[in-house]
Write a protein that binds this DNA or RNA. Structure first.
Length: 256
DNA sequence: ATGGTTGTAAAACAA
């Protein structure tokens, strides 16, 4: 089974690229973030034509997450169990081939010290609590998505420049490690030690051309799944296509 | 350089 995660920055603006990528990469599961549309505007029929089922949790203008899968997914959950009405559409979970797939779009945080930064840290605390209350570490659990945090210096093109800034500040990294401490392993780091591999590049200042990026999109797995993870990579090609998302897909392959 | 780019949606806001 191949699973991928991709922040598309509007599914309708990116539809031609997503369809093209599905046809060449042929993942079994594709987790999407930043749909920027309500459920009714999600182009599910286009994915049906390529053989994918859609589980969607949309929202007007901002956020929105979805899970595409060749096999039908079961037990679809939208948002945290204790979410209030109108809460951000940032989490969708579904079971596929015995794997509990949790797809998240962690808040960006705007800048360190802002209200949105505090919201990000609180959301991350809730995500850790969600795993404590919902799953056992011996189950096959997978957490993926746009985490909006680079875990380590080797995940940042210029750590000195980024130190203390949103996406790489100490409190965000601590909040991220707290989630990881539930029992996750970074699938990408099972297979690659060196730095310089990024999943996001700012649209501005030729950041992609200069490889000024961050590794902020991740696939994390519980212990039983880590044993079955054969490969993980970042597919930079869609970032070179016309009208790209600022993120590119991250992929993992499992012996399932 | 107090900037730069993109998407939504119709002027700012979010990233």
């Amino acid at each position: 089974m191949r699973l991928a995660t991709w922040n598309v920055n509007s599914i309708n603006a990116r539809l031609p690229l997503v369809l093209k990528w599905l046809e060449v990469a042929k993942p079994d599961v594709l987790c999407l973030q930043e749909l920027k549309c309500v459920d009714e505007k999600f182009p599910a029929e286009e994915f049906t034509k390529l053989g994918y089922n859609s589980a969607v949790f949309g929202q007007r203008t901002y956020n929105g997450v979805a899970i595409l899968s060749r096999e039908a997914s079961t037990n679809i959950q939208r948002g945290f169990p204790d979410d209030e009405e109108g809460a951000h559409a940032r989490l969708i979970a579904a079971t596929i081939k015995g794997v509990r797939v949790v797809n998240v779009y962690i808040p960006n945080g705007q800048f360190v010290g802002s209200d949105k930064y505090r919201f990000k840290l609180e959301w991350m605390r809730r995500l850790r609590r969600f795993f404590d209350e919902s799953y056992e570490t011996k189950e096959r659990v997978l957490l993926c998505g746009d985490f909006n945090v680079a875990p380590e210096e080797r995940d940042v093109h210029d750590p000195a420049l980024w130190e203390g800034h949103v996406l790489f500040s100490k409190r965000e990294r601590a909040a991220l490690m707290n989630i990881k401490d539930w029992g996750f392993t970074d699938a990408f780091r099972l297979h690659t030690e060196e730095g310089g591999h990024y999943s996001w590049w700012d649209y501005r200042q030729g950041a992609f051309r200069r490889n000024n990026g961050l590794r902020i999109d991740h696939i994390w797995v519980s212990e039983p799944l880590a044993k079955d993870c054969k490969e993980s990579w970042i597919d930079k090609e869609p970032r070179t296509w016309e009208r790209p998302s600022d993120h590119t897909p991250v992929v993992a392959r499992f012996r399932i």
